[in-house]
Design a protein around this nucleic acid. Structure first.
Lengths: 232, 232
DNA sequence: CGTTAAAGTCGTCAATTGACGACATAGAAA
DNA sequence: TTTCTATGTCGTCAATTGACGACTTTAACG
């Protein structure tokens, strides 16, 4: 009888390494390439198995001995941290900020285009799972960077929306951010529903994005006016 | 030098068991009570440490020997499943559906009251962490029950909102659900931000809920009309 | 062909971890 | 007080798991 872990490790190997040659890794590689290949495999592996996934299974998925991992990363933590840096922090496009402020297009068009792209590029199954696993493990790995980027995004969204509608924003930036989260949070949660909760999704993605954007742009004025009325 | 795990286990004991007597559990208990106490402690424990948290540390948190856990639950999986059933599935109030349909109050009042309560009762740190850990681990433990409840909730929300505004809902139920998620998802994501991402929150909770509800009620008509226009 | 540094593997260690048999003890009933 | 059963603990086993020293293999270079 095989040990349980051996079976699992073979599954891991088949699941990823079974493309080149007979089945093993892919011959001998120069240091940088092997490192890149390990990181790529590791990002998928940790996304699926959590940050507590075992090094032996990861090694099998890479088609490589477990010992080799430690030739590149001194500890498992270092490997995980590197995956996080590459996959999580590297998933934002600078161009988004430019396109979002291109007033030749309507805000609705810009927001829709942005969120369709954002869903495809960043709010993927892999990104979300890694981000959630990292957020749940107390060791909050550098969330400041993401916080900073998202905050910028929220402010751009609100500035552009307010300009289009022709209304002034409240002075309290925290309130402005919270208003933008009305849109950004709803779409983020849509992605979580699809990728993490495995909800069935019949309605096409583009249509969903359009719904959210239109709802936001139609309701924003009323929301701001209500806020101003209560804080005058 | 102490082993690393011993230090951690003592922390676990202090963190929860340090209320009665000198420090140990709480004397000998009848079977049902001990079982309940273990489940209560376990829900906090797994919420904080993930479903992979170790039985020895949990036992210390309970102020009880590790062996005793296996007198109540044949395997760790059974224990986790029981925690999930109690904490996740038991967090919904039937009264919500009644109150949400009480048309003596405005929809805005009802929705606001409901979501303030929902945030306090269900979307807690503990509930969210357990739910996310369970959702991430492939073993999707009976998500059907939750799906069913939330779907009912979405339909009530849309029915009441449409009645208040005086507008007909689209026939496609999937689309109607997706529209309701605009509100429900945004508030769920607000809870995730606060409890999981540890975002700073300056704006008081009630105000946030009011913002979301008002945004939803103000934008709903436009969203439905846009949908009808595109699908005629 | 021979040398040699880098790439890669084998085997193992110590700590961890789920599970459980054997034993101890409190407290209610006789 | 004695008995007896449910409550509870001790110690241990086998599998797992991060880490690493010692060793082998490949291929670029002279």
């Amino acid at each position: 009888m095989k040990a349980k872990s051996d079976v699992l490790r073979e599954q891991a190997r088949k699941a990823s390494g079974a493309k080149k040659e007979g089945g093993s890794g892919s011959g001998r590689l120069p240091r940088a390439e092997r490192r890149a290949q390990i990181l790529e495999t590791a990002s998928d592996f940790f996304a699926e198995n959590g940050l507590t996934g075992q090094t032996r299974m990861l090694a099998d998925a890479c088609g490589v001995s477990q010992r080799l991992l430690y030739r590149f990363f001194p500890t498992k933590q270092d490997l995980v941290a590197e995956v996080y840096k590459e996959e999580i922090l590297g998933a934002f496009k600078a161009g988004w900020f430019v396109d979002l402020q291109n007033r030749k297009l309507s805000a609705e068009e810009r927001f829709t285009q942005f969120y369709v792209d954002y869903l495809e590029t960043t709010l993927t199954r892999k990104w979300l799972r890694l981000f959630l696993y990292a957020s749940l493990s107390d060791a909050s790995m550098a969330p400041d960077y993401i916080t900073s980027i998202v905050t910028q995004l929220l402010e751009v969204l609100m500035r552009e929306a307010a300009h289009e509608i022709g209304i002034d924003l409240p002075d309290d930036r925290e309130v402005v951010h919270e208003m933008a989260w009305t849109l950004h949070g709803a779409i983020s949660h849509y992605a979580i529903r699809r990728h993490i909760y495995k909800a069935s999704w019949q309605v096409p993605e583009t249509q969903v994005v359009k719904m959210h954007v239109r709802m936001f742009l139609s309701g924003l004025a009323a929301m701001i006016e209500a806020y101003n009325a209560e804080n005058s």
